[in-house]
C-alpha cells in the first residue's frame, strides 16, 4: 500500500480528504485513544464517482476478547484473586515492579472464583500479561506476546507456582 496523505481529525473527530479518484482506499488511525487506551483502526473504504463517502467509526469496535484462566502448576486448580495487568508490550519491562507496571497498564483486574478474568482489549495490538499477588504485590509470572483479532476471542491459560 502506498501512503497518499495524512490528516488530523478536527475537534468534531472529522478528517476531510476532499476530492479523490474513484478507488478502494485503506484508512489507518494508530493513535486514537478512548479512556486513555490507544486503539489501532484500519479499514477499507470505497470512493465512487460523484458520490460523498462519509465513513464514521467507533474506535472501540476495533477490539477483541481476551479470556485468561490462571491455574496452579502444582495441582492444576484454578486460582482466584490473582492480580492481572495488561500492558502494551512496548511499555512492558519484566524487571519493573507491580506498581510500575500498573502505571503503564491499559487494563487490570483480578481473577474470579474459577480463575478467570475477561478483558475487552484493542485488536491487533501487542500486549504483555503480568500476574501478581494482590496481597504482597510480588510478581508471579508474565507473558510477552498476546494479541487478539477484531471481534475474536482468545482463551488463554497461565500457570503459576
Amino acid at each position: 500500500n502506498i501512503l497518499l496523505e495524512t490528516r488530523l481529525t478536527d475537534p468534531n473527530g472529522l478528517a476531510d480528504f476532499g476530492d479523490l479518484n474513484p478507488n478502494n482506499y485503506m484508512l489507518v488511525a494508530d493513535s486514537a485513544k478512548v479512556n486513555n487506551v490507544a486503539y489501532l483502526v484500519q479499514e477499507y473504504v470505497q470512493v465512487r464517482t460523484g458520490a460523498v463517502k462519509a465513513k464514521e467509526t467507533k474506535v472501540t469496535d476495533y477490539s477483541g476478547t481476551f479470556a485468561l484462566t490462571v491455574r496452579s502448576y502444582n495441582n492444576n486448580q484454578p486460582l482466584k484473586n490473582i492480580g492481572v495487568i495488561i500492558i502494551p508490550s512496548n511499555k512492558f519491562n519484566y524487571a519493573s515492579t507491580t506498581a510500575a507496571n500498573l502505571k503503564v497498564a491499559d487494563f487490570s483486574g483480578v481473577t474470579n472464583d474459577t480463575g478467570l478474568i475477561t478483558f475487552k482489549i484493542p485488536s491487533n495490538k501487542q500486549y504483555s500479561v503480568y500476574l501478581y499477588n494482590t496481597v504482597t504485590n510480588a510478581s508471579y509470572n508474565y507473558n510477552n506476546s498476546v494479541s487478539v483479532q477484531k471481534d475474536a476471542t482468545v482463551n488463554y491459560l497461565m500457570n503459576i507456582y
Binding site: 478536527d10 476530492d19 484508512l27 488511525a29 464514521e56 467509526t57 467507533k58 474506535v59
Partner: peptide, 26 residues
C-alpha cells in the same frame, strides 16, 4: 470524475475524537 471522502472517529458515546492522525493508503 472524482468522489469525496470524509472520515469521522468517535468514542462509545459518539463524541468525536480530535487530533487523531489518519493516513490514507492507495
Amino acid at each position: 470524475t472524482s468522489g469525496k471522502l470524509t472520515y469521522r472517529l468517535t468514542d462509545d458515546a459518539g463524541k468525536g475524537l480530535a487530533n487523531v492522525k489518519v493516513s490514507l493508503f492507495d
